[in-house]
């Protein structure tokens, strides 16, 4: 008798089909979030706040109450939701353009205040929805539509390492960077998301997961080559790991 070892999570809307480009890891990230919401049994108590960019479509796929925030303001709106209803499970889902650039103040201050919310941030080193421009996480040397000869320090400055920065904030309870480049790392990514969610449920403070993801369309790469880039370039600079976990430090 065969046992089922994989299914579409019940938290995914019936007949919902992801609208991301072929091979985009956003779909994996959305599935992992959906799986964690299901396994923790919090889906019917969840209010998600979705940041503008490719990420915002998560509310079309996961069967949950959701609020769409202006670009960069998802963490602020999530703060409002949580302060109004402290018993709700509240998380934000946004891209690096939203979180690390226009919304950096909101993310950092939520971390400093120790807001009991979780932020998931997709880092694909570009503004995907608008066609692949240079963003706050664009890597040195990376060619984008607004860095046609590659990102150089003199002209564009440096990319930001989010997980490390957020970990430095005293109100942060959990900060991690994970990658979706391999099946093994996808499993680690799920563990991190679940941990971040659990940290919120325990009321320990702000929890944050940065997910290294691909943008095959704007990188002008096959999905396969895109994963090689994640391994060979991104993970060398944006090193995966758990940068803060108060549950371990407290042991």
């Amino acid at each position: 008798m065969a046992t089922q070892v994989f299914k579409i999570p019940n938290t995914i809307k019936k007949d919902a089909k992801f609208t991301f480009c072929p091979g985009c890891d956003h779909g994996v990230a959305v599935r992992l979030v959906a799986e964690c919401l299901e396994e923790l049994g919090v889906i019917d108590n969840t209010i998600a706040v979705c940041g503008i960019g490719c990420s915002v479509t998560i509310y079309d796929f996961i069967d949950m109450d959701a609020l769409e925030a202006p670009h960069g303001r998802s963490v602020a709106e999530a703060t409002g939701v949580k302060r109004a209803k402290p018993d709700k499970f509240v998380f934000t889902y946004s891209g690096d353009g939203d979180y690390a650039s226009i919304g950096l103040a909101e993310g950092m201050h939520a971390a400093l205040r120790g807001e009991k919310i979780t932020s998931i941030c997709i880092n694909n080193t570009t503004y995907g929805m608008t066609g692949g421009q240079l963003g706050p996480t664009t890597m040195l040397g990376q060619v984008t539509t607004t860095s046609p000869t590659g990102r150089n320090i003199e002209y564009y400055g440096y990319p930001i390492k989010l997980a490390e920065h957020i970990a430095l904030c005293d109100g942060t309870a959990f900060s991690a960077r994970v990658s979706l480049d391999t099946v093994a790392n996808i499993k680690k990514a799920k563990q991190a998301i679940k941990k971040a969610f659990e940290v919120q449920l325990k009321g320990l403070g702000y929890s944050f997961v940065e997910i290294l993801s691909t943008c095959p369309t704007n990188w002008r790469m096959t999905p396969d080559k895109a994963h090689e880039r994640v391994q060979n370039e991104m993970m060398q600079v944006f090193k995966p790991g758990i940068y803060k976990d108060v549950t371990v430090e407290n042991v």
Binding site: I47, V49, A76, A78, T79, G80, V81, R83, A105, E106
Partner: peptide, 26 residues
């Protein structure tokens, strides 16, 4: 009740939106 000294007016008004979305007066 809730009071947040926001990091900016952008954040303050968006926090208000977040709270209002749950049906409370904010």
């Amino acid at each position: 009740r809730a009071y947040v000294s926001a990091e900016s007016e952008l954040a303050a008004i968006n926090m208000t939106i977040g709270a209002c979305s749950t049906g409370v007066k904010a």
